[in-house]
Design a protein around this nucleic acid. Structure first.
Lengths: 327, 327
DNA sequence: ATGAAAGCGCTAACAG
DNA sequence: CTGTTAGCGCTTTCAT
């Protein structure tokens, strides 16, 4: 591996000239430039990021913190993050916490150790106090999550309104017995979506039946099945279900099918996220689409602003109700 | 951000001592150690990886090259890679090529620029010549793919045998009209799986019907639907289908359902990969399970061996036929 | 057990 | 337009 010194020697110029050529070829004289190009080519030189990074005290790496990469919701957000990061000359470190604090610790330390220039946190289970402490000392934005205290810059959607739209849609097509499959209320978005659900019911004068809210302890397929199983066992069975994630809805769909019931004729179903699988089920799933790619892209812009010391406002993006076969 | 110098000054020792404390606390005297610990704590010192990396000329980063993170097959392999890498003190850079050469180029350059210590390539569409060139100059292993010339170390399964097992299973439960949904034969695994399909037919004296092989040009859900649509339009319709990926099989399932046919009664279906979604469909999918996690884990071990200059043999892992409701 | 000093590869004043 | 020089923060001989 050739170094900048060797190239300088070969080209008969100083290392500064090589560095200038690398960073701004225009400012070196045409004649010199040609000599440099020649030397670089014959030595097969590639500049070392290690040297550059130390000198500029930056890594051009962004940490993306998420619970798990296997959740299709995140994969689309990541696409937005990645494309924008590359465009801006950054690379991303995808960090799965699996909701384990010790993993989280590793990634926060990488930030402290200057291995990354900033963090995009998408983990809802992250330790709040630690996150705030990091946010105070390093560039950090939250994506799809946010802290109610508003200390941390974020990009998200209006979860209350999105849930309201979903349930309103079910009411509009004639449903009155509407259940909700929610995730734990320790999550802010779960509390907000429940509010939207309640507001929609309330507005239409439909009484709230606590029997029809099922709270899962995770967002996996099986949790959706269990939830539906429970709902189907109630004395009065709902005719429509709003699930706060497509995977939960797909689990519910499975259970409905197993019981010999049909969607949407016996039970209508609305999911959340518009993951690609939601279009592969039989029937396809009505769902709330979040602007996932845009969320990712925006977070990068905001984070890079922060890295460059600029002030950035939090932002709330629009969602969309996608009506398909399940309602 | 405190530096090692400041800590040294505060503790009244030399920077060398701080460095020793950081890397091997045992070799510094107990009394000095305490002074150092005190200084580190009061200054809130965190060592900079940038300095360390330059000095040791390593980045402790591994590039993982894959077509797309949204394919669930890769997510599980990645889990194996990530866990093992972290255990070994490395971090991973997940790099999606989207099968675009220019993206590939970026990541190869990162390697040349010493931003990573090695590459795990899982991309079947990678430019072969370039890959070999990189492999000659840098630590690189292939995961789930391999080059027939055998220059590059790899970890994979026996695709021919896996396909053979899948088709043999269909024959055993009484099928004779067995179609195959394959991906393009530019992919080695596609050619190998076709060989396995043919061998199984041949061994049971079932004549090969070229009408029943459909070659898709991608691995998406819609390609599976199109393939099935075509197969259902043939003069003679097969009673069983072997698809080389679960996503293709799920697409086929959708099309079968739309035509009012039932799986497995009218048509039996076997997929490949055992992605988590293959257990969420109605009916659940019979499939070939690859040891994805282990493949990821092994690749990291092999790559780190290479990084450390040790010789490493390629390896072929076992697959497993998982019989579920679709057959 | 500790310190002094060199240097990893690069960039950025500064001077000319 | 180009060269000289001083580091960025760390590790690692080589002495002591």
């Amino acid at each position: 591996m050739a170094t900048i010194q060797e190239v300088a020697q070969k080209a008969g110029v100083s290392v500064a000239t090589i560095s200038r050529y690398l960073n701004n070829p225009a400012i070196v004289a045409k004649e010199t430039r040609e000599k440099v190009e020649q030397a670089i080519k014959t030595l097969n030189y590639e500049p070392s990021m290690l040297g550059r990074n130390l000198r500029k005290s930056e890594s051009r790496l962004l940490i993306v913190l998420l619970p798990s990469i296997s959740n299709p919701f995140y994969t689309e957000v990541i696409n937005g993050i990645e494309d924008t990061a590359i465009e801006k000359g950054y690379n991303i470190l995808l960090c799965q916490t699996d909701s384990k604090p010790e993993r989280e610790e590793i990634y926060f330390n990488m930030m402290k150790n200057r291995l990354a220039d900033g963090i995009i946190s998408m983990d809802p289970t992250v330790d709040r106090a630690k996150l705030i402490e990091i946010a105070k000392n390093f560039p950090l934005v939250q994506c799809s999550e946010y802290d109610e205290e508003g200390i941390i810059t974020y990009v998200t959607i209006d979860n209350e309104l999105a849930a309201y739209h979903a349930v309103k849609h079910l009411i509009k097509i004639g449903h009155k017995k509407i259940a909700m499959i929610n995730s734990g209320e320790k999550f802010l978005y779960a509390r907000e979506r429940k509010q939207g659900y309640l507001r929609a019911l309330n507005e239409s004068g439909i009484p709230f039946n606590p029997d029809w809210i099922f709270t899962t302890d995770n967002l996996e397929f099986d949790a959706g099945r269990q939830a539906m199983k429970s709902l189907l066992g109630k004395s009065e069975i709902p005719t429509a279900v709003f699930a706060v994630s497509d995977i939960l809805a797909i689990g519910a769909l499975k259970e409905i099918n197993l019981k010999g019931l049909a969607v949407p004729d016996d039970i209508a179903l609305v999911g959340f996220d518009k993951i690609s699988f939601s279009n592969m089920t039989q029937p396809t799933l009505t769902t709330i689409s979040q602007p996932m790619y845009q969320m990712g892209s925006m977070s990068v812009h905001m984070l890079i602003n922060k890295i460059n010391g600029k002030h950035t406002e939090s932002i709330i993006l629009d969602h969309e109700l996608v009506i398909r076969e399940s309602t």
